Simulated assay, not measured.
Amino acid sequence: MTYKVIVEDKYDVTKLVETITLKDSLDQIAYQGNVRLAVSATSGLPAISPGMAVRINGVPFGGTGMATLLHPAVIWEAESSNGSVKRLSLTIYDRMIYLEKSEDEFLLPKDQTATQRLKTYAKEWKIPCATLPNTATKLSKAVYRSQTILSMIYADLKETAKSGGDMYHPRMTPAGLQLFKVGSNAKVHELDRLIDLSQMRTLEGAVTKAKVMAASESSSGKEVPSKVLAIEEQGIAELGTLQKLFQDDQVKTAAAAKKLAKSKLTGIQETFTVTAPDINTIRAGDAVLLKGIKLIVMSVSRDLSAGPGTMTLELGTAELVKRRYYLE
């Protein structure tokens, strides 16, 4: 096997591994692994329980020697079954799972960046940070009440993108928590050895008419209609009227409302699903080339059970990624 599974930095359980799958996507921040072990009385396996440290190493695509693929990580669930062969199924996440599952309150001043706020969250949870890029965009004051740290991070990154900044996605690396600029990977892989390719084109999620509304206000106590700040249309003749209403407290002017409405207009939604031999360094947020077109990986799931394994990627354009993950 070209992969190794190490528990607590000292127990190499690779020989017991039957299956390994990994999952990563833009709508989750913790990289997930699932490992199934076949356990015998003579395997010498120590008692495995949630909370134990674990890592998955592998030979990087096109490289030599072992590299860390999922680390630092923690065993989140351990399920055993006792048939003719005892099996132990482990669910593993990188340590950002603690930000995904934990709740808190934060009152954050205006003019901070998403980078500064990520450092604040990470410090509270004692998660080390790698060298973080400067997201630059100054954010408005935030009052986060009783919600997950994950939702706070996403709110900061969405505001950054909405305000004209770049799209970023958090990643856990051996060097610490990182902010990855979507599509900025140095090596852009060409997907040319395809096992399967499917294309989906749908009106689900399309918006041909966008209205930006102001918060309704009434000094008399009577219900009044919300004020319409801007209306933009596109593609109604071809696709029909698919209208959505939007309200954003940060939109204060007619020009800003018009810009927001235009950004919400979307036509036919097009995505690609590719199954191919695994390139184990590809992560959600990476750019890849498919038939000469540059696309962004929205999700990746990989099955590493046999040989180099296979991967299934969901791909979309940068514009689709921005609308789906950062402008909603």
Score class of each variant (00 low, 15 high):
V300S: 00
K10V: 14
R36S: 11
A67I: 08
L157S: 04
G44Q: 09
S301Y: 05
R201K: 15
T64S: 14
K86R: 15
A186W: 07
G63C: 08
K264C: 01
T21Q: 09
L179H: 10
E319W: 10
A284Y: 00
D111E: 13
V54T: 04
P60S: 04
G240Y: 02
S140R: 08
M311V: 00
I56P: 10
T208V: 05
H71K: 15
K187M: 11
G183Q: 05
F272P: 00
F180V: 09
L245V: 07
G240I: 01
L191W: 07
K294S: 06
L289A: 12
K15T: 09
L108I: 08
A256D: 06
L203F: 10
G44F: 04
R201E: 15
G165H: 12
A254L: 08
N82D: 14
H189A: 15
L107P: 10
A256Q: 01
A73I: 03
K294F: 07
V35N: 00
T113D: 05
V7I: 09
L118F: 06
E319F: 09
K322C: 02
A161K: 06
Y144K: 10
T253N: 06
V300I: 11
A73G: 07
L203R: 14
E233P: 12
A186Q: 12
S218D: 00
S25T: 09
Q112H: 08
D303P: 03
I293N: 11
Q199V: 14
T91N: 13
G292M: 13
T137P: 09
T19Q: 11
R193F: 08
K23M: 10
H71S: 15
L150P: 02
K294C: 08
G240S: 04
V297S: 02
T241G: 01
R171L: 12
D166N: 07
A306L: 15
A67M: 12
I20D: 01
N34I: 07
